[in-house]
C-alpha cells in the first residue's frame, strides 16, 4: 500500500525561470523509511513543502495517506508531522512549552502520546525549562522531532534532520527513526549525506530537480555496476591529472586518501594502466578493485543524467 504518491510534480520559482522539481513521480510505501538523497538545491525541500501542503505545485498530483495535497490539505495537516530543515520552533519558549503548545493545537496532550516520544524526550527532559533558542544543535533537533511526533502522525516528513548535527547525535537520531518505523509510522527523510542512505529502506536520488533513480540501496548499487578502482601513489595531484588523461578512463575523482577511477570495460584498460602510470613517473602505485558505494554511484548517475 502506498502512503505517499507523487505523480508528475513540477514546481518552478521566479515566474518559471528557476526549476525546483521537474516532472517528479514516485511512491512511498506504508511503513517505509524512505530517503531522499541529493545535494543542496536539488529540490528536496520543495518536494517536502508540497507534500506538507505548504506549497502548491505548478502541475502534477500528490497524495499523502490517501488525501490530495491540494483538496484535502486540512486532513493532511492533522495526520502528518513535519520537521523543516531550519529550526522552526519558538526560540523564546521552553522545551516544555513548545511541546505542550504543539500537543494542544493538535487536540492532544503530551501525556497521551508520551510513550511515542519518551525515548527522545528523556534525553532533553533535564533541560525542559530551558528556552529552545538556547539549546545545542542536537537537542534542538530532538525537540523538533518530539514536536513533530507529539500528535502521533501517520506520516513523518523530516527535511535534513541531521544537517549540522554531530556524528554521535546523527547516529542516535537514525536509531530513533528506525524505532519509529517499527511502530508503523511512514517516514520520509531527506539528507545530503550519502552514508545515511544505507539506513533507509529505499532511497530516491535527486539532482537538479530530477529523480535520478529510486530503489533500495542494494538495487541502485547493483544496477550501476562499475569498473571501479581505488588508486594511489606518491604524487596524488599529478596522479589525478594523469588518470583523467588516461584514454580508458570514464571518470576519476579524489575520494579522501585515494582516487576512485572508473574504467571502461575494455580488455586492456586495466592491464595497460600500471605501465602507463610508471611511464608518467609515479612511484608506490597501488591499484585495487573496489565495489562502488553510494557516493560513486551518485556521481556516475549525475554524469549519466
Amino acid at each position: 500500500m502506498a502512503e505517499v504518491i507523487i505523480q508528475n510534480i513540477t514546481k518552478t520559482y521566479e515566474k518559471g525561470t528557476v526549476k525546483a522539481l521537474d516532472n517528479v513521480s514516485f511512491t512511498v510505501k506504508s511503513g517505509e523509511l524512505f530517503g531522499l538523497i541529493g545535494a543542496d538545491g536539488a529540490g528536496k525541500t520543495s518536494l517536502f513543502r508540497i507534500l506538507t501542503t505548504l506549497l502548491i505545485p505548478d502541475s502534477g498530483k500528490a497524495s499523502v495517506a490517501g488525501f490530495d495535497v491540494i483538496q484535502d490539505f486540512k486532513k493532511i495537516r492533522e495526520i502528518v508531522g513535519y520537521m523543516p530543515g531550519k529550526f522552526s520552533l519558538y526560540q523564546d519558549l521552553s522545551i516544555e512549552e513548545n511541546l505542550n503548545f504543539f500537543a494542544t493545537v493538535f487536540g492532544t496532550t503530551v501525556e497521551e502520546n508520551y510513550e511515542l516520544i519518551r525515548e527522545i524526550y528523556v534525553q532533553i527532559e533535564p533541560f525542559k525549562k530551558r528556552l529552545a533558542g538556547q539549546l545545542s544543535g542536537g537537542m534542538k533537533q530532538k525537540l523538533a522531532l518530539c514536536c513533530a511526533l507529539i500528535h502521533e502522525p501517520k506520516v513523518l516528513f523530516l527535511d535534513e534532520p541531521t544537517t549540522g548535527v554531530d556524528p554521535v547525535s546523527r547516529k542516535e537520531f537514525w536509531e530513533m527513526l528506525g524505532r519509529l518505523k517499527e511502530r508503523g509510522i511512514t517516514i520520509m527523510v531527506s539528507t545530503p549525506y550519502m552514508d545515511e542512505a544505507k539506513l533507509c529502506d529505499r532511497i530516491a536520488l535527486i539532482q537538479n530537480s530530477k529523480i535520478l533513480d529510486i530503489d533500495t540501496l542494494e538495487g541502485i548499487l547493483s544496477k550501476n555496476k562499475q569498473n571501479l578502482f581505488a588508486v594511489n601513489s606518491d604524487k596524488m595531484y599529478q596522479l589525478l591529472k594523469d588518470l583523467r588523461a588516461y584514454p580508458n578512463t570514464i571518470s576519476c575523482f579524489a575520494f579522501g586518501q585515494k582516487h576512485h577511477l572508473q574504467l571502461n570495460s575494455g580488455e586492456n584498460s586495466l592491464k595497460s594502466l600500471l605501465p602507463y602510470l610508471k611511464q608518467k613517473g609515479h612511484t608506490n602505485i597501488s591499484i585495487k578493485a573496489i565495489s562502488p558505494d553510494i557516493e560513486d554511484t551518485f556521481i556516475k548517475l549525475m554524469q549519466d543524467a
Partner: peptide, 13 residues
C-alpha cells in the same frame, strides 16, 4: 522570518 509560521501552517490551526 524565524520560520515558525511553517511549523504553524502544518498544524490544524
Amino acid at each position: 522570518e524565524k520560520g515558525t509560521i511553517e511549523q504553524i501552517n502544518v498544524t490544524p490551526i
